[in-house]
Simulated scan of single mutants.
Amino acid sequence: MFAVVRTGGKQYRVATDDKILVEKIDGEAGTNVTLETLMFGDAGAITTGGSVTAEIVAQTKGDKVIIFKKRRRHNYRRKNGHRQQLTVLKITSVG
């Protein structure tokens, strides 16, 4: 059985015991959270409703993204970086 959940403006297809990286969710490691579900599916049958429970495994950061701006012949250079804060979730129950 799988479910489609939405968190952080993105949608994820999950099943029991999956681990996913999502945008930061407040909470400590070991805390259980309930995710917004869009639909469930099982062997060709798709339904709505139900709930998905996940456990926060860790709070981490993603890879660094470098932003570099330059304008030719104007002596203009700007370098900036960004690391997105992420949460690792383990799906404990679907249904």
Rank of each mutant, 00 (worst) to 15 (best):
M1D: 10
M1C: 08
F2M: 02
F2Y: 15
A3E: 08
V5Q: 00
R6M: 12
T7I: 12
G8V: 03
G9I: 02
G9W: 03
G9P: 01
Y12H: 10
R13T: 14
R13G: 01
V14E: 00
V14C: 01
A15F: 07
A15K: 12
A15W: 05
A15I: 11
A15C: 08
T16L: 08
T16P: 07
D17I: 06
D18F: 01
D18W: 01
K19R: 15
I20Y: 05
I20L: 03
I20N: 02
L21D: 12
L21P: 00
L21Q: 13
L21F: 14
V22W: 01
V22H: 04
E23P: 10
E23L: 13
K24T: 10
K24E: 10
I25V: 09
I25H: 03
D26S: 15
D26T: 12
D26A: 15
G27P: 03
A29I: 04
A29C: 07
G30W: 03
T31G: 06
N32F: 13
N32E: 15
V33S: 08
T34C: 01
T34A: 08
T34I: 04
L35D: 01
L35K: 00
E36S: 13
T37D: 09
L38C: 02
L38D: 00
M39A: 09
F40P: 05
F40I: 07
F40R: 13
D42N: 13
A43T: 12
A43H: 13
G44S: 03
G44K: 08
G44A: 04
A45N: 13
A45M: 10
A45L: 09
A45Q: 12
I46S: 05
T47E: 09
T48M: 11
T48Q: 12
T48N: 09
T48I: 11
G49P: 03
G49S: 07
G50C: 06
S51H: 11
S51Y: 10
V52Y: 04
T53L: 10
A54R: 06
A54I: 07
E55A: 07
E55K: 14
I56N: 07
V57K: 10
V57D: 02
A58S: 15
T60Y: 00
T60A: 05
T60C: 04
K61Q: 12
G62I: 02
G62A: 08
K64M: 11
I66E: 13
I67D: 12
I67K: 14
F68E: 10
F68S: 11
F68K: 09
K69E: 14
K70G: 10
K70P: 04
R71S: 13
R72S: 15
R72Y: 12
H74L: 11
N75H: 14
N75D: 15
N75M: 08
R77K: 15
R78A: 12
R78Q: 11
R78G: 03
K79T: 14
N80D: 13
N80L: 11
G81E: 01
H82I: 06
H82P: 06
R83A: 03
Q84G: 04
Q85V: 07
L86K: 04
T87Y: 05
V88K: 05
V88G: 01
V88Y: 02
V88E: 05
L89E: 06
L89C: 07
L89D: 05
K90N: 07
I91W: 02
T92E: 08
T92R: 09
T92G: 04
V94T: 06
G95R: 10
